[in-house]
């Protein structure tokens, strides 16, 4: 069982709070980082209001938005689990602060997938990646199956067996105690 905040891979994973609005905005409005995400207005009160609404969904077990910190409690990035539908969920809003640990992306992916599959009991993750987001797409194609595509996105799915292959592979790169 994962207890939050969770100390894993040298990072501390916890649920987003209203006080994180500024950090979230700093990543989501960074032109380089957010170019493959849906646009976010640089509006702090609006972001705070969004988090308040999110916390209601979180309380109902409908969505989980994680912020991860380094051991000095400095925020490093974000990842979100949402669109829960039976045994299926979506993972996204994956953003890493420039200068973070060079494996923070892998660590966040490992944590969030493990939380979804093992803690919440999901069996399948469906998600999309912008075609232009080549780095992330290359990574996901190592494990996930393509279920479709359009002009902008590739649509992918990762079932439990693929998740387990991915977990084994990634933990051979990043040791859980790191």
């Amino acid at each position: 069982m994962i207890t939050l905040p969770a100390h894993q891979y040298g990072l501390i994973f916890r649920l987003v709070e209203e006080r994180d609005a500024e950090f979230i905005l700093s990543l989501r409005t960074d032109p380089k980082l957010a170019r493959h995400l849906s646009a976010t207005e640089n509006d702090l009160p609006k972001q705070q209001a969004w988090i308040r609404t999110y916390k209601q969904r979180e309380a109902l077990g409908q969505e989980y938005y994680f912020l991860f910190e380094n051991e000095d409690h400095e925020p490093q990035g974000l990842v979100r689990l949402y669109d829960f539908d039976g045994k299926t969920y979506t993972s996204g809003s994956w953003l890493i602060k420039p200068g973070a640990d060079e494996f923070a992306a892998i660590k966040a992916d490992l944590f969030s997938a493990s939380f979804a599959m093992n803690e919440l009991g999901f069996e399948r993750c469906v998600f999309d990646v912008r075609k232009a987001n080549k780095k992330v797409l290359r990574f996901h194609l190592m494990f996930a199956s393509v279920t479709g595509e359009d002009e902008l996105n590739v649509y992918l799915a990762l079932d439990r067996a693929a998740y387990e292959r991915k977990f084994k592979y990634l933990t051979s790169i990043i040791k859980p105690q790191e």
Partner: peptide, 26 residues
């Protein structure tokens, strides 16, 4: 260079050379 580039590099090496880079290698 970022966490995402590191991840993409690992994927490229695996795909092109069937070699698994580790965190320590990088």
């Amino acid at each position: 260079w970022s966490s995402m580039t590191a991840l993409s590099l690992i994927a490229m090496v695996d795909e092109s050379y069937s070699v698994r880079l580790t965190g320590d290698d990088i």
